Simulated scan of single mutants.
Amino acid sequence: MTEKTAPLFSFGIVADPQYADVAPRPDMGRYYAQSPQKLDEAIAAFNSQDLAFVVTLGDIIDHGWENFDIILNCYDKLRHRSVMLPGNHDFSVAPQHLGTVHERLSMPSPWYDFTVGHVRFVVLDGSDVSLFAPPQGDPRRELAAQRLDVLKQAGAINAQNWNGSFSPEQVAWLSDTLDAAEKAGETVIIFCHYPLYPDNAHNMWDAPQTLELLSTRRCVKAWFCGHNHVGNYGQVSSTHFMNFKGMVDTLDENTFAIADIFEDRIEIRGFGREDSRTLLLSALTDRQQVAVAR
């Protein structure tokens, strides 16, 4: 196989800007008001590259509906497509705004997918069943309380009220979407705010069930997330679980990344605190095998 020197395409990655017009919390490593400046720097770097899109992996704000205005204005300078999904902090808004967070982030729906070439990107909402995202009176809040109680009784380290989980409807949609991708011979990269693996206090409540679902689909090559600001990485079979570091952390050191997609690997180019690494796509789909053979 002759290795290509240029990627098939590339995209930018930002995790947890978590902006708020409030004083910093050095004890937590949170410098909320610095995020627009860091995001401007990241966008300038992205604009100098040929990218298919830029994804922001949730926690665009720390709290407060009014803070969306400032941080989202930064994206007006971005010359590429912007893909966003909500994190837990994006729902720290007044109750009347809970039902419109996805719309504020210009999402076509709470979960959806799109393709670039033969790569299908799946955008998920891990706050779907949680104690904070569903509007008041929504039955998902009661389901969330039940799920959290079960985890607490089991002593699970991710039994935290700032984590979330998927609804049965989203799981069914994800299963159908992955089946279609598998049938089409596509590579799948999933975006979600919350990690699944390795085991960590920040993981989704239903991480074990979701991992089991993914394990039966060889098309799933990567799960990209934020939420755990220190970052993390693990691999299960041919799926890479990449947790990107939080932009809101540190006073003046930035963190963001660019992913270069090749037939046989994903190259993560880290900027600032983000690490660079190579994610090998060891189990290629049938369509990829044909493309590589050519």
Rank of each mutant, 00 (worst) to 15 (best):
A257K: 00
S109I: 07
E182H: 04
N161V: 14
F166P: 03
G155M: 09
S48A: 15
G272L: 14
I71G: 03
F262P: 04
V14D: 07
R294Y: 09
V171E: 06
L143Q: 11
R217E: 10
E253Q: 07
L196N: 01
T115A: 15
D27V: 15
Q18S: 15
L78M: 09
F271M: 11
M107Q: 13
V171G: 03
S10N: 04
R147F: 02
S130C: 02
A172C: 13
A23L: 04
D286H: 11
F114G: 04
Q18T: 11
P208R: 10
I258K: 01
T278S: 07
Q289Y: 05
S276A: 07
D252I: 00
H102F: 06
C219G: 03
C225R: 08
A291M: 02
V188L: 03
W173K: 12
I43M: 05
Y233E: 10
S10Y: 02
P108V: 13
I268T: 01
Y194A: 09
S92E: 06
E103Q: 15
D128H: 02
A201C: 09
C225G: 07
V171Q: 08
T210F: 01
L251R: 13
H97P: 10
D59C: 06
T250P: 00
E263L: 12
L148G: 06
I258D: 07
L280H: 14
V188I: 01
A184K: 11
Q209I: 07
D90Q: 04
S127V: 06
L98N: 04
G272A: 15
E66T: 13
L211I: 14
G137P: 02
T278G: 06
S165M: 03
I261K: 06
M28E: 15
R79N: 15
R104N: 11
V54G: 13
A6N: 15
I268E: 06
F9I: 05
V236H: 12
